[in-house]
């Protein structure tokens, strides 16, 4: 069976819709991973020991096991304890938590790089500990770590293909559905790869824009 890419344009609408789903899933889990990462970093650095240690164990588990396994655990495992999430919600939560842990590592480094004088200055001016962290430390820390967080975002986009395995109809599953109609795996997987590549180019372009804007305002 030779290659015949002429079948791909017939599925243009489906692939476009799949791409939009992939982008939506990426954005939703990016929001969770960003704010979750900040929260985890603050707890890991400032939380009481009673909270700190469970959170450290949580990070260790999430960094030491495959994302695919975590997605299965959230989607199929939670049913066992009575929580039945729709597949795309489970996918977003799984991706979001997984990358929140990775972001938290980076943000912790960023927080530690903020000058100690900033903390002391803020406390001297009468800000509470929580206010100091929220209004002085975290904004400065996040600004310095935007580039590595951007790298995680690129990884998140590619890993979003995994949620097809738990049945979310994004780009990968869309191309699989097209394949089951046409029996042309090579053509449609290449088409999906091209879509991912284009989304990736767009993402990297936007990240560069964000990075340069942040540098100007410094």
């Amino acid at each position: 069976m030779g290659l015949d890419f002429s079948v791909v344009p017939e599925y243009f609408d489906e692939l476009l819709l799949g791409s939009l789903w992939t982008i939506a899933i990426m954005l939703a889990s990016a929001v969770i991973s960003f704010f979750g990462g900040i929260l985890l970093a603050v707890i890991a650095l400032y939380g009481p020991a009673l909270v700190r240690y469970p959170f450290r164990a949580f990070s260790f588990v999430f960094m030491g096991t495959p994302l695919l396994l975590q997605l299965f655990l959230i989607y199929f495992g939670l049913i066992q304890i009575g929580i039945d999430l729709p597949a795309f919600v489970a996918g977003i939560i799984g991706l979001g938590l997984h990358f929140a842990v990775y972001n938290s590592d980076i943000i912790q480094a960023g927080i530690m790089a903020v000058d100690k004088g900033q903390h002391e200055g803020a406390r001297t001016l009468g800000l509470s500990k929580l206010q100091t962290i929220r209004k002085i430390i975290v904004p400065q820390a996040v600004r310095t770590v935007i580039p590595p967080i951007g790298n995680n975002l690129v990884a998140l986009l590619k890993d979003s293909a995994l949620v097809s395995v738990i049945g979310v109809t994004e780009l990968t599953l869309t191309s699989q559905l097209a394949i089951s109609n046409t029996f042309r795996p090579f053509e449609f997987y290449v088409a999906a790869a091209v879509c991912y590549y284009v989304i990736n180019l767009g993402l990297e372009y936007s990240l560069r824009r964000v990075e340069s804007r942040i540098q100007v305002s410094r």
Binding site: M1, D159, S160, A161, F186, E187, V190, A193
Partner: peptide, 22 residues
């Protein structure tokens, strides 16, 4: 650029399911 710009899962699928076609 190509390998890092596309998901590993898709690369595996191209190789395993698409490979026989080529």
């Amino acid at each position: 650029s190509v390998i890092r710009g596309t998901p590993a899962l898709i690369q595996l699928f191209i190789l395993y399911f698409g490979g026989p076609q080529i």
